[in-house]
Design a protein around this nucleic acid. Sequence first.
RNA 1: GCCGAAGUGGCGGAAUAGGCAGACGCGCACGACUCAAAAUCGUGUUCCCUACGGGAAUGAGGGUUCGAUUCCCUCCUUCGGCACCA
Length: 788
Amino acid sequence: MRMKGYNVLFPMGFDAFGLNAENAAIKDGIHPMKRTFANIERMRKQMRSMGTMFDWEREAVSADPSYYKWTEWFFVQLYKAGLAYRKMSAVDWCPKDNTTLAREQVIGENRVCERCGTPVIKKNLEQWFFKTTKYADELLRFDEIDWPERVKVLQTNWIGRSEGAEVKFRIESNQSSVDSDQSALDTDDLSLITVFTTRPDTLWGATFMVFAPEHPLVDKVTTPQQKQVVEDYKMQAARQSDIEREAVDKEKTGVFTGGYAINPVNNERIPIWIADYVLMSYGTGAIMAVPAHDERDFEFARKYDLPIVEVIRPEPPHQLPPNSPNLGGEIEGGELEVAYIGEGVMVNSGPFNGTKVNNEKGRKNPGIRAVIDWLEEKGIGKEAVNYRYRDWLISRQRYWGAPIPMIHCDVHGWNPVPEDQLPVILPDDVEWKPTGESPLKLHPTWKDTTCPICGEPAERETDTMDTFMCSSWYHLRYLSPHYDKGPFDEAEYNYWMPVDTYTGGIEHATMHLLYTRFFHKALRDLGITKGNEPMMQLRNQGMVLAEDHAKMSKSRGNVVAPDMLVEKYGADTVRAYLMFFARWEMGAPWDSQGIEGTARWMRRVWTLFTDASDSPATASDETKLTLRRRVHQTLRKVTHDFESFEFNTIISSLMELLNEMYKAREAGAAGSPEWSEAQENYLKMLAPVAPHIAEELWTNHLGKPYSIHQQSWPPVDEAAAKEDVVEIPVQINGKVRDRITGPGGGGRGRGQVCRAGKRDREEASGRQGTREGDRGQGQTGEFGCVVG
RNA sequence: GCCGAAGUGGCGGAAUAGGCAGACGCGCACGACUCAAAAUCGUGUUCCCUACGGGAAUGAGGGUUCGAUUCCCUCCUUCGGCACCA
């Protein structure tokens, strides 16, 4: 890119806070601060030895107070904008790391901690959150960015948008309610319960309601007779781990509360049950159950003998294709065998009987659209959207992170640390080894401060921030890491931002990459950043696995150390091999033998350029033209492949061209202008791959001015790259029958169909005797070809 | 169950607006140089066959086409994500 005349900023920095660093420090017994900065120093050395061209002037380190001052500042800005808030809820807790985690940091169906792999548990705690859900809809839009489909799909699934309706059900007044506070139930607000459904068209089939066991209204609806079973069930549900509870194949369980609700569309009295298949954390924690058209409700209704009312009926059989399977059981009013999820017409649905229902979601479905309009008109429900996405929990009960700059006063509650007092410095004299408590809480004096409102004694927040907070804005700090009047210098921002190309692993898809997009959009609304997206082009690199096909890790002892390789083979070979040995986006297991081939190539490059066998050019014109054609074809390919991240084929093209050059020299091309051009272009193409050898050969053997890295990228001479003869095979029945040659037409843009003739296909087949005779009988086959 | 990605030699991987599959490299075999080895250079290396010739083959099976790794349909396998989300 630099050789193409762009000003490129390739910064390097260290996201040095966080569990990884802290846990490693605990293990080694070395203070995380000391350990972290020692590690950074070692990595800087490794990077330099690889010949990387980072702009070290712009290095940023998130664990440095000059950095986390602004991490804290951003927190304050978000707090002031109402995007940071504190709430009590059931949160994920890692029992090994002794901290809460964000929903994104709980991985897989075993629900393990993203850092240490320990299964997480739920705890009811009051924690700080960022209101990421406010941006859910906008985060689903990717039209401005060139990101891999994979990442977009992962983010879309993670946000999990579903369209439907909210419907209000009245809870029947229950004179004999367990709750002694009768008045609570008498008010309209509390006697209404809202449910979310994606299928409002099935409302007439709602024959019971189910609450999550933890639902706050459970006690209110439970009758004295049912109190004991309800309490028992709640206890049992609470004891179960999430994994047990969420196991899909588990048989559904639940108990009747004794209470009833009124289905607002037909005033039917329907029983209210509690069951653990309804989750408190999604929607409103209560559902309307439509057993005829929902598999889960169906299973539950069957088990507990609850009524099943069919409200969607498949179209009459004569409209179905013959032999189509019985869609959802008996149509003639009998008992359904399974829940029917497909399309059809509404029945038993009062004013909507006969309305068609298809498989579309939301308003695109005529049945759903009609019912939503009707609900809104009647005031008993409205169109609604629900997400599985949650707000971002950022509190960590850990030491090694940026302090959350908030102060709690008994009188004035929570208030941010005044901006002129930032940063809140992370003290280094704490007991940072694990005790199960927030380390900062145990510091004798650190938390003592005064309330910014009244000046009376108050306490600091002793939790620290999730490190993903640090990494949500580090691209901005690179712009001006030494700037102290703000998080970044606006002039630099205007010059560089947004990030043109961003690379990283796919594992960040629903964490860092989602957080940083949220962060950018939130800052945009605060007037701090511009544009809608922080990173325009994203490419994911694969992972280099160890030779045993496992992930490289110190504990497995299968790590290949880059500095050892550099020492053995030199930086150029290591760099080139890393580009060559696997597809960049895929990654592959390391192959320590394969690097020999790349080393051999480097030696052959060296030999070709340093052998003093440049005799007067004796090669034929054809040899020279062919050489030139190969050079420009390679140039075209290499230029293209750099842009599309196909680094492995860059190396193989350069290897091929080198082989061609050896042949051309053999044929006496050395000394000709074409030879010189080939040499120059070869080194220029080699320069980004193997910077050291390219420079050495450029300045010392070709005698060109220093530095090759400041040369401009050579343009492709399309005329020279053009093949002058193109041969197209013509095949019949998979056999090559004929060949047609024509002038090379410069690659693309061909499309002239030439009718080379007509031939009876059967005759052709018969002549080869490879085809059964009844094929294509009597037909006249026509074959064309395309000439370039 | 739902969503997504990927299946090509012993290995990493090439080739997709359809055009001689296996580029390039690893490994392996043979040869040259050498007293010898290493390095280097050269030749060969998908599989099968009555082998100067022919046949099969890009996860499996169909389809479109003169021609399919590439486009369409149905499956299978592997990996990743989500999952009682109403």
